[in-house]
């Protein structure tokens, strides 16, 4: 697992850092300042290393450990091997949550990518692009709770959407916030609020394509589609890869918006139809409704981690192409 992650991380670093990771270091190898710098290891890296290890790495490893035990948080831990994993995969609630997580990952992900790419193509040379870009980026800085609460108001039976639909002749608007409709609505809300961020990243990729390629296309008589297929896509391919990795990592943690979407049902827990694995983990461990099952809860979390790791590796493989130098 960790090796898998490490590979992905290496790729991320290489990708992010572009051309010259080692140049700076090579130029000064062996100089006295270099030797001095090496002495800074403990005071400079030490504190960050210790806090990060204790508060992030150890808990991650402990999660894997706990997932092989039966434990209610207090009392003795009992080693049960893979039983928790078998148990969650037999639990219809977990399967529903896992399915929802996959829906977010793939359906919402693809929708975001298609829209973001289309938007970045339109934005490329339109007037006022800076204004548009700053406005569509802003939702990324807002807590998703806010969108969840607002959606509850907008789709309320007497809310904005229905007051707008009324004059249009819709006499019986759908029950937007009925349990079976909530998750699709969450998916739409996520597309609406996340696309702007990915558009901004894709634009950074589209922007670095030098203008003379477009001129050359025009001179060669290329159609808009040919220009897209042979210039823009190959030259932004690596940015696509980065975005896909980012979405994989962030979609698996989605929690807040589901927790409050459409107000709250009586018990303070969202309807099970809209759970994701993150919600499943939290509820199984902390809801206080039944005996907490830390084993099953961490098993669910570890499964999400495995999902992320596998997908990141697959993505890096699939997106790997000869880097186009330009």
């Amino acid at each position: 697992m960790s090796e898998v992650d490490a590979n992905a991380a290496v790729d991320t670093v290489l990708l992010a850092d572009g051309a010259k990771p080692a140049k700076a270091a090579r130029r000064e190898a062996g100089s006295s300042i270099d030797r001095q710098r090496k002495k800074l290891l403990i005071p400079f890296v030490g504190p960050a290393f210790i806090l990060y290890t204790i508060l992030f790495v150890v808990p991650s490893l402990a999660a894997v450990w706990i997932s092989f035990h039966s434990w209610s948080g207090s009392g003795p831990m009992e080693f049960v091997g893979g039983e928790n994993y078998v148990r969650v995969f037999k639990d219809p609630l977990f399967l529903k949550s896992f399915g929802n997580t996959l829906l977010l990952l793939f359906v919402v992900g693809i929708a975001i990518f298609v829209l973001a790419f289309a938007m970045s193509l339109v934005l490329r040379d339109m007037a006022g692009r800076k204004i548009v870009r700053s406005v569509i980026f802003f939702p990324h800085l807002i807590n998703a709770l806010v969108f969840g609460v607002l959606a509850g108001f907008i789709f309320n039976p007497g809310g904005i959407v229905n007051t707008l639909l009324g004059p249009l002749g819709v006499k019986e608007p759908p029950a937007w916030l009925a349990q079976e409709n909530i998750f699709p609505l969450i998916m739409v809300t996520l597309v609406a609020t996340t696309t702007g961020y990915y558009t901004t990243i894709l634009m950074a990729g589209v922007d670095r394509i030098p203008p003379y390629y477009y001129e050359d296309c025009a001179l060669a008589g290329a159609t808009a589609f040919q220009r897209l297929r042979y210039v823009i896509l190959p030259l932004t391919w690596d940015v696509f890869g980065t975005c896909a990795v980012l979405w994989t990592i962030s979609s698996v943690k989605i929690f807040e918006i589901i927790w409050v979407f459409g107000g709250s049902s009586g018990a303070g827990i969202p309807p099970t139809q809209s759970w994701t694995t993150a919600v499943y983990t939290y509820v199984t461990a902390f809801s206080g409704q039944s005996t907490p099952s830390y084993g099953a809860a961490t098993a669910s979390a570890v499964i999400s981690l495995a999902l992320v790791s596998v997908l990141v590796v697959v993505l890096r493989r699939a997106m790997r192409r000869d880097a186009v130098e330009f």
Binding site: L55, F56, V58, P59, S60, A62, A63, I66, I249, V252, K253, F255, T277, A278, T281, Y282, A285, Y294, A297, T298, S300, A301, V302, S304, L305, V308
Partner: peptide, 8 residues
């Protein structure tokens, strides 16, 4: 993801 470290 954050939910992994939550319980530990």
């Amino acid at each position: 993801p954050a939910q992994v470290i939550l319980i530990p």
